[in-house]
């Protein structure tokens, strides 16, 4: 699971009002090289929750992202490279996503988050 996905996911357990962002529990992180695509990054940037991304990247051991970001930074290739790495190249291979309200763990195996709810959570 890439942090791009993490940035879109939220806990949708019945009764949970604020399921975003999910906390990340790391068992194994892998890095996979992905072709650099600045247009995609520029397109996605306004759709990101920046703080959630910075925190998630930190949990995964990547601390290069600035605390605050605005779109003027998209001009800098250095920034785009960092964003690219954090968003697309860091994979949570094994671990869990934890609902911030209930503490329910959504397991991540082989890089696939399992977001299916239990019978009593629907």
């Amino acid at each position: 699971m890439r942090l791009f996905t993490h940035n879109m996911l939220s806990s949708n357990i019945k009764g949970v009002a604020n399921g975003f962002p999910l906390r990340i529990e790391v068992d194994q992180v892998v890095e996979k090289q992905v072709d650099f695509n600045p247009d995609f990054l520029k397109n996605m940037f306004p759709k990101l929750e920046w703080k959630a991304l910075v925190d998630a990247a930190r949990t995964m051991g990547y601390t290069e992202l600035p605390e605050e970001a605005d779109s003027s930074m998209l001009e800098s290739e250095e920034f785009l490279r960092k964003l690219h790495h954090a968003l697309l190249e860091l994979h949570l291979e094994e671990g869990a996503l934890v609902c911030p309200e209930t503490g329910r763990k959504f397991p991540v195996n082989k890089g696939i988050p399992n977001m299916l709810l239990h019978e009593d959570e629907v």
Binding site: M8, N12, G19, P21, I112, P113, M115
Partner: peptide, 13 residues
């Protein structure tokens, strides 16, 4: 991204 999710209760924020 690939994930396991239910279209009836999609987990998107």
């Amino acid at each position: 991204a690939l994930l396991r999710a239910d279209n009836n209760l999609p987990p998107w924020r």
